[in-house]
């Protein structure tokens, strides 16, 4: 498969570029547009983003690799990010993590065989009032207990 950006994505990237006095400012947003469409930032996809924004491929790749929310290989449909920072640690994120690994039967960073979930840890997600907490895709969930995980996961097909 040769990944390619759709015209719609390119239009969206150009719209982002138009918002800023300098086009490179659109890069972070553009990479999300590309990643959302292609599933990951494959070399061909990066080259296309670089071409649309008119930046060196090396620069685009370097920038993308700096930030943790970009990925260079595909992941599951839903990304689970379990916060393991202090407040969540104090509230028992370890138990939650263990339960998740067991239930999904994957290791940290792994993806379920059906491609549904990828499990990762995260640093403080600014929701310590609901510790221990996690995000599934764009949604926050917490406080978590091993018991309520099934019900939450069931919402994500």
């Amino acid at each position: 498969m040769k990944a390619a950006l759709s015209e719609a994505s390119k239009v969206e990237i150009r719209r982002l570029m138009a918002q800023f006095p300098q086009r490179q400012s659109a890069l972070l947003g553009a990479l999300f547009v590309a990643q959302d469409e292609a599933g990951a930032l494959y070399p061909e996809i990066i080259a296309e983003v670089a071409e649309v924004i008119d930046l060196p491929v090396s620069e685009v790749t370097s920038v993308a690799s700096f930030y943790h929310l970009y990925r260079f290989s595909p992941e599951g449909r839903h990304l689970i990010q379990v916060c393991t920072n202090i407040s969540c640690l104090l509230s028992g994120c370890d138990r939650v993590l263990r339960a998740l690994k067991q239930r999904l039967d994957i290791e940290m960073g792994g993806t379920t065989p059906d491609g549904r979930f990828t499990l990762k840890t995260a640093e403080c997600l600014a929701a310590c009032e609901t510790a221990p907490m996690m995000m599934v895709g764009p949604d926050r969930h917490g406080p978590l207990a091993p018991e309520n995980l099934d019900e939450i996961l069931a919402r994500y097909g």
Partner: peptide, 27 residues
Amino acid sequence: LVMATGAGAYIAGEETALLESLEGRRA
């Protein structure tokens, strides 16, 4: 008023790193 996005980097909260990031570079 324009919205820009971070991409997962705590250091981007530091003011000058934030500006780098807002300019589309490594924070």
